[in-house]
Amino acid sequence: MELRHFYSFVAVAEELNFTKAAKRLQIAQPPVTRHIRDLEAELGVQLFERNSSRVFLTDAGRSFLNEARVVLQHVSQAMEAARQTGGGWAGTVRLGIARGLGDAVSRIMNDYLRLAPRVEIDVRDIPSGFQCDALVDRKIDVGFMRPPINSAQLVSAALFQEQFSVVLRKGSPLAKRKSLEVRDLANQTLLLIDRKMSPGVYDRTLALFRERGVEPKTVSTAALSGDEAGSILVDSGKGIYIAVGKNPIHPAFTDRLITLPLNDSAAVTDVHVVWRRDEQSRTTVDFVRFTRNGFQEKKLSKHDEELDMQSGGLMSSRVTSQSKRYRPKR
């Protein structure tokens, strides 16, 4: 059993398509098929069910996938440690970013890369509600999301707060105001995305209306306000969105829709950076510490001390001077 067998297996298991797996690995398809066949023969079990159009993981395949990911993570960490020892920080940090946080994250990321040009950063759009699973499954290393954080295997730290806003048509009588209150929305239809996408924002939105004595008519939708489909819903008069983050309107609709702040002290949500409690990668720990110092300056908290222990106490002097010069715009 060789590492290439693990890489091919994980690629096929995640893509559920041999052609896409080969493309991801940048090799031809026949070697991928051969690696899976050899792996199944050596293990003595079938890892995939195949038919003419689809590929499925068997129970044995699902069990093997969890362990294979851990093996490849350990290999990556071993390679990273060797590179670092050989002279300087290197490695890859995989980020998950919730909708509307790209501006804040890109400022931190670009500033960090100026200090650590050998680090590769992979960025993925992942809704807040799915980032905890992605972290636990080691599909990403750091998440930028809105709470809740629902796993004891993860650690998080608040970076800043976002104010809720209202997305509505420019032709609406409410659009003439500079800001809105919850009571102004009593007669509006509220477009609600699936709670799984961002459970914290979903719950806070409904609680806000409830606390202010307003019972809005709600319509469930799979589209976010910044999606083309979501902006179409607002433009066609189907309802309004309570939104968070930057640019909650699709660019094609900025001439027809408007965003107004929701004027309520409780209409806010935190934005957190999240990472694994047992994180061993110095590069990941380095990036998390840099991120935290980029948004706030304070004495070492419990999480700071934990990060310092994870990084062997090497991060404090490296990051502090740069973080004092850098403040991302909110």
Results as ranks from 00 to 15, higher is better:
L72S: 02
Q73R: 14
Q73G: 13
H74L: 12
H74A: 09
H74N: 08
H74R: 13
H74F: 03
V75G: 02
V75T: 04
V75P: 00
V75H: 15
S76E: 08
S76D: 07
Q77C: 00
A78T: 13
M79A: 09
E80W: 09
E80H: 07
E80F: 12
A82G: 07
A82W: 04
R83S: 14
R83T: 04
Q84M: 12
Q84E: 10
Q84V: 08
T85L: 15
T85W: 10
G86S: 15
G86Q: 11
G86Y: 09
G87M: 12
G87Q: 12
W89V: 15
A90I: 04
T92M: 10
V93I: 09
V93R: 05
R94N: 08
L95Y: 12
L95N: 13
L95G: 14
L95H: 11
G96C: 14
G96I: 12
I97W: 00
I97C: 06
I97D: 03
A98F: 01
A98V: 01
R99D: 05
G100M: 06
G100K: 01
L101P: 01
L101H: 04
G102D: 10
D103P: 04
A104I: 03
A104Q: 06
V105R: 05
S106F: 02
R107Q: 15
R107W: 10
R107A: 06
I108D: 01
I108K: 07
M109Y: 01
M109L: 11
N110S: 13
N110E: 11
N110I: 03
D111V: 00
D111N: 04
Y112M: 00
L113E: 03
R114L: 09
R114T: 12
L115K: 03
A116L: 05
A116Q: 02
A116G: 00
P117T: 07
P117N: 04
R118F: 07
R118I: 01
R118G: 15
V119L: 05
V119N: 03
V119M: 12
V119R: 05
E120D: 05
E120A: 07
